[in-house]
């Protein structure tokens, strides 16, 4: 089943939270809603879940209108950042909660609990209480609880944000693995662009209650359409058309349909090539060693640029360098 959102909007006390949202989520697609806090991503997720009413617009799942369906009858699964397990229930009771509500026979519930705990690698933890588990384990239980009811849509509200970096990376992988295996359409809210890049089939980048750009992780990273998306998806160098021509004459001016004063050329730091040269127009102003790579700050034609190079090469502050880039590695964005 696929989810279809049309012209959705919502405001709180006159403050617009969501504006003209159009979005489709495919049958087994993993979509990330990405954006800074206050961009409306969580509001959108809560409206999809049915926990918040929309002011207007349509949401359909497999052609069925969800407007009149309360959250508890939608049959979705949801996972929150704060785990939100029931503290007085055992792990098994938590996982089986959704099934128990729907009056599933006890033996079926038991079998399903065992199956899910196995899936999230907590087979021996059924009799423990949430307080006896680590954060990562609690979140696994929350995921199992959401999946137990065979949800037609899985909603994840920053599920990994509260976890340690290491646990987060592991769980990121596991979550994606499980989702792929079960083929459940999934929407995840996050403010972590790295997480979105690593997990999503499609990223929906949001800004101020609107969708700024939606597309594959590769598209959003390499061909952002606006300055906001370019900056949010990682470090970038943004050059006005005049300097862009100096760097890469093949690009010509700003593309058609874009006024020169509102066009910027976006170049990712790792795509900038540096060459030590006494006649170079760039000058190294600083370096940051990051282990596998190093960042090089440059001054070039009145602009500050950021480049990334292998940590094998050494750069001295004050050194003159040649800066170049190949035309396909650049993208024009709206300022």
């Amino acid at each position: 089943m696929s989810l279809q959102i049309t012209a959705l909007h919502k405001s709180f006390d006159g403050q617009v939270a969501l504006e003209r949202i159009h979005l489709a989520v495919g049958a087994s697609e993993f979509v990330c809603l990405l954006g800074p806090s206050g961009c409306g991503k969580t509001t959108l997720l809560r409206i999809i879940a049915g926990l918040l009413p929309a002011d207007g617009g349509r949401i359909t799942l497999g052609g069925r209108d969800l407007a009149t369906l309360p959250a508890r009858d939608r049959g979705f699964g949801i996972v929150f950042q704060s785990y939100s397990l029931f503290p007085h229930m055992t792990v098994a009771q938590n996982v089986g909660y959704g099934l128990a509500i729907h009056r599933t026979p006890a033996d079926v519930v038991q079998a399903r609990i065992a199956e899910l705990l196995d899936m999230v690698k907590l087979a021996d933890f059924g009799t423990r209480y949430p307080a006896q588990l680590s954060g990562g384990q609690q979140q696994r239980v929350a995921i199992a609880r959401a999946l137990a009811v065979n949800p037609s849509l899985l909603l994840l509200d920053e599920p990994l944000s509260a976890l340690d970096a290491r646990v987060r990376a592991d769980l990121r992988h596991e979550l994606r693995e499980v989702q792929r295996r079960l083929g459940i359409p999934t929407i995840m809210v996050t403010h972590d662009q790295e997480e979105a890049l690593a997990m999503a089939d499609r990223i929906v980048c949001m800004q101020g209650g609107r969708i700024a750009q939606a597309g594959s992780p590769r598209e959003l990273y390499l061909a952002p359409r606006t300055r906001f998306v370019a900056n949010f998806m990682g470090h970038s160098n943004l050059l006005p058309p005049a300097q862009a021509r100096l760097l890469q004459p093949a690009l010509g001016g700003a593309p058609e349909g874009m006024a020169p004063e509102s066009a910027l050329l976006c170049i990712r730091p790792e795509r900038l090539q540096l060459q030590a040269s006494a006649q170079g127009t760039g000058r190294v102003t600083g370096t940051t060693f990051l282990g596998n790579i190093q960042r090089v700050q440059l001054h070039w034609n009145g602009l500050d640029l950021l480049a990334e190079s292998s940590s094998a090469s050494t750069w001295e502050v004050g050194q003159s360098v040649d800066v170049s880039v190949s035309a396909p590695d650049c993208a024009w964005v709206h300022a």
Partner: peptide, 13 residues
């Protein structure tokens, strides 16, 4: 915790 109620609501309680 509001989220516990949300989770229960989505699970059908």
């Amino acid at each position: 915790d509001a989220r516990q109620y949300d989770a229960a609501e989505v699970l059908g309680a």
